[in-house]
């Protein structure tokens, strides 16, 4: 019993890790304060769930989820490329509301507030990951692969150009880099990983509805990225493990389940406020938000 609970927690840590490092790529390494990250997660989850319910194999749904989110990430970046700071945050937040509104109202496709039940668990060429232990292995492999890929991207010349754009966009343009293109690619890659995280989530929980992707869900991820520290992958991973597990003892103190949800949000928002006041760089951060 306790083992099953830990496996469940570790699966959630893995999914959150993918979500957080992908947001880190946009916010920390590219300086794009994207408050619409949950929308890509939502797009990935719905794409994957709808295809899987049609009987398509998992690997296909999984990749399709990533690519669908990537396309939307690229499309969102086109109009918002030139926006900065507050305006970019508001526009991406707005995008997130449009996606939730569509998920709620396009009942012909998404069944609206009823959600999509019975999403099949993944299986690869006859090998089923329905058992949570094997699912955990799958999540860990994908999370590690995402970590390595994003790390590779950051260390590549492309990643250096992204950081240069974040630090001084004008200077980077003077050096002959197309910063608008760089930012678009960054947002698209970030969205791809959020999409595959969504696909894992949908096939793990086997049920999704629009409320799984509300604004509230952004707080833990944003909290992880900022507390771990901007532009630090190591910090993000440590913060993911600590912060995902942190509110869990609440369940054992004996609060009713209707209180545990809001309590988690309170913990995350308080932590976020405190870190912003006393240590705005987070624990391993290299830069500060501007």
């Amino acid at each position: 019993m306790i083992e099953a609970y830990f496996i469940h927690l570790l699966i959630l840590v893995g999914i959150y890790a993918i979500l957080a490092i992908s947001l880190q790529l946009a916010v920390g390494f590219s300086g794009l304060l994207n408050l619409g990250h949950i929308a890509f997660y939502c797009i990935g989850a719905y794409t994957s769930a709808l295809l899987a319910l049609q009987g398509l194999p998992f690997w296909f749904c999984f990749l399709a989820a990533g690519f669908m989110a990537m396309v939307f990430g690229f499309l969102l970046s086109l109009p918002t490329n030139k926006l900065k700071g507050d305006y970019l945050a508001l526009a991406t937040l707005g995008f997130s509301f449009v996606v939730t509104a569509v998920a709620l109202n396009w009942t012909g496709l998404t069944r609206g507030p009823l959600g999509l039940p019975g999403i099949p668990k993944p299986s690869f060429f006859g090998f089923s990951f329905a058992n949570n232990f094997w699912f955990l292995i799958l999540v860990l492999i994908i999370a590690t692969a995402s970590y390595l890929i994003i790390k590779r991207i950051i260390q590549s010349p492309f990643g250096k150009a992204l950081e240069a754009t974040r630090d001084d966009e004008l200077a980077t343009r003077v050096l002959g880099k197309n910063t608008l293109k760089l930012k678009s690619y960054s947002l698209a890659i970030s969205a791809f990983f959020a999409g595959i995280a969504g696909s894992l989530y949908a096939s793990y929980i086997t049920f999704i509805d629009p409320s799984s992707f509300s604004l509230m869900q952004l707080i833990p991820v944003l909290c992880i990225v900022i507390i771990g520290g901007l532009a630090s992958l190591k910090g993000t991973i440590i913060a993911t493990v600590v912060l995902t597990l942190l509110p869990e003892p609440l369940r054992f103190i004996g609060f009713p389940s209707s209180v545990v949800g809001p309590m988690r949000q309170i913990i995350y928002s308080l932590l976020l406020l405190l870190i912003l006041i006393y240590r705005p760089r987070g624990f391993f951060g290299k830069i500060e938000l501007e």
Partner: peptide, 12 residues
């Protein structure tokens, strides 16, 4: 603090 930090704080 920059306006962006205040924005995130107010969101929290």
């Amino acid at each position: 603090a920059s306006p962006v930090i205040l924005l995130i704080a107010s969101f929290a």
